[in-house]
């Protein structure tokens, strides 16, 4: 554990909490992509099967359980409790276009051809693109609520911090995992355009609106 990892994990947790609180306080999930949230739940379910096979630390297990419960909770709020406020007309990204190729790739490029390892690889690849339905939704409506942009910023920061963590681990422990690094870089690159808008608009107190 290093500081980049820890801050990255906390940033990830903050993102999930911001989203949950936004939905809960406003009693509305308008502007949030349910499809991205389903994909994130799928990411956590397939990755954290290792809760049953590998015990690392109390921190590790507790965080995994929190991520699982909160992401499933978000899906529940969106598709059941506040379903009437869900903006499905704008959430039209076809997730099979992500899940199918990612599934195929995780069978082809993995560290070990075993069920758990393939599911872990699937979760890493899927996470890297899971935000696309959300970004697609924003590009369709041309704007995002400020709170939604804070959510995205925290979520993007998490992966960017993980990259710094991997650089640090490579130099201090000689550890690197190519699958995680490549997927993590892809994931971070997807946020770059958003980061630019966030810094130039949201931090200056303006709402995030895409240029027409």
């Amino acid at each position: 554990m290093n500081v980049f990892r820890l801050v990255g994990d906390l940033s990830h947790l903050l993102a999930i909490i911001i989203l949950l609180l936004k939905i809960w306080k406003t009693r509305s999930c308008a502007g949030v992509s349910g499809k991205s949230q389903i994909l994130f739940s799928l990411v956590f379910i397939t990755r954290y099967l290792d809760l049953f096979t590998n015990f690392i630390s109390v921190y590790n297990s507790v965080m995994k359980i929190i991520y699982l419960v909160t992401s499933l909770g978000t899906v529940y709020l969106m598709y059941f409790k506040f379903k009437a406020t869900y903006d499905s007309n704008h959430d039209t990204f076809r997730i099979e276009f992500l899940v199918v190729p990612v599934g195929g790739l995780s069978f082809l490029v993995n560290h070990d051809f075993t069920p758990l390892e393939i599911l872990w690889t699937f979760s890493i690849y899927l996470e890297s693109v899971a935000i696309l339905p959300q970004l697609f939704m924003i590009s369709k409506t041309g704007e995002a609520e400020t709170i939604t942009s804070h959510y995205l910023f925290a979520l993007g920061s998490y992966r960017a911090l993980y990259i710094v963590n991997w650089v640090y681990r490579y130099y201090t422990e000689g550890f690197f995992d190519l699958i995680a690094i490549v997927a993590g870089c892809v994931q971070t690159i997807l946020y770059c355009d958003f980061f630019y808008l966030y810094i130039t608009k949201v931090l200056k107190g303006k709402q995030l609106k895409l240029p027409a």
């Binding site: 290792d50 590998n54 590790n60 965080m63 991520y67």
Partner: peptide
């Protein structure tokens, strides 16, 4: 890579 490392990260 050691299996430990992979499951250590979230």
């Amino acid at each position: 890579p050691k299996i430990h490392d992979k499951h250590d990260e979230l």
